[in-house]
Simulated assay, not measured.
Amino acid sequence: MPHPYLDDPSGVVALAHRGFSRDGRENSMAAFAAAVDLGFRYVETDAHATADGVAVALHDATLDRTTDGRGAVADLPWSTVARARIGGVEPVPRLDELLGTWPDLHVNVDVKDARAVRPVAEAVERTRAHDRVCVASFSHARRRATLALLSRPVARSAGTLEVARFVAAHRLRLPAAAARALRDVDALQVPARQGPLRVVDAGTVAAAHAGGTAVHVWTVNEPAEMHRLLDLGVDGLVTDRADLLRDVLVARGTWR
């Protein structure tokens, strides 16, 4: 049985990457609200932790790029991070705030740092959001450490090493090894290409599906590429252009 996180009635998991914002206010509550207002049931976000153990929805390790604040999140207390403003306007959200504001919203959480492991798990536990959370990380060790602290399963996304092993085994025509590479995950969340290497094609999609693993592709912002990947049979798309992805899915008759 697939994890409830993956159970979308449309058959396509449409993920708004860091919410939806055309003015640089990524990972803000306003950006997540904009995605929800468009009708999105899924958003993607990132998680770091403050010095006093508060999980925040923020991509970068520092406040410098996206906010008017400065410094590494891990070195700052929540009281300081809370004063920073994304794009000079929006506050940095706590992860439990995001999970608690929309009780039906599915949230893909990329655990960016080992210090965020326990705070992320605590935010999921506090909001009882297990059925609508997917824990992702480039590090499978961070993902596993987060899962170990949870009282109930959440969906799991493959880390970099698992992806590399899967793609290598598939290219070498070793289906058993490809299946083993993904045995601990529910979703393969990958770019369509990694440098010169095509990660997502009909063969890799079929191989992932053979092992019961969903395929989500990031970050896809062009309608033609959205159509191409959906025609290959991928199960989900992560996009900065939630408006365009919605239009594509409406045109294909799969927007619910």
Rank of each mutant, 00 (worst) to 15 (best):
G71V: 10
L105Q: 12
V199S: 13
R65T: 09
G236L: 04
D184A: 14
H209M: 01
T101M: 07
R180D: 15
D247A: 15
P196R: 13
A84Q: 03
H170N: 04
L245N: 08
T160W: 15
A158D: 10
V92E: 08
A168K: 08
L15Q: 12
A51T: 03
A164V: 15
R22T: 14
H216C: 00
V220T: 13
R94N: 03
D52V: 03
A187C: 14
F138R: 10
L38A: 00
R143I: 01
R65M: 11
S137L: 05
R115W: 02
R65P: 08
H227G: 00
R241H: 14
R94H: 06
D110A: 00
G24N: 07
L6N: 05
N108T: 13
Q194T: 14
E122L: 11
V43K: 07
A61D: 14
V190R: 09
P223E: 12
A121R: 08
L38I: 02
R252Q: 10
R22C: 01
V167K: 05
D104I: 01
M226L: 06
A123P: 01
G211Y: 12
T254K: 12
G69L: 05
A47F: 04
V234Y: 11
A158F: 07
R41M: 06
A34V: 04
L15C: 10
G39D: 10
A49C: 06
T67M: 05
H209T: 03
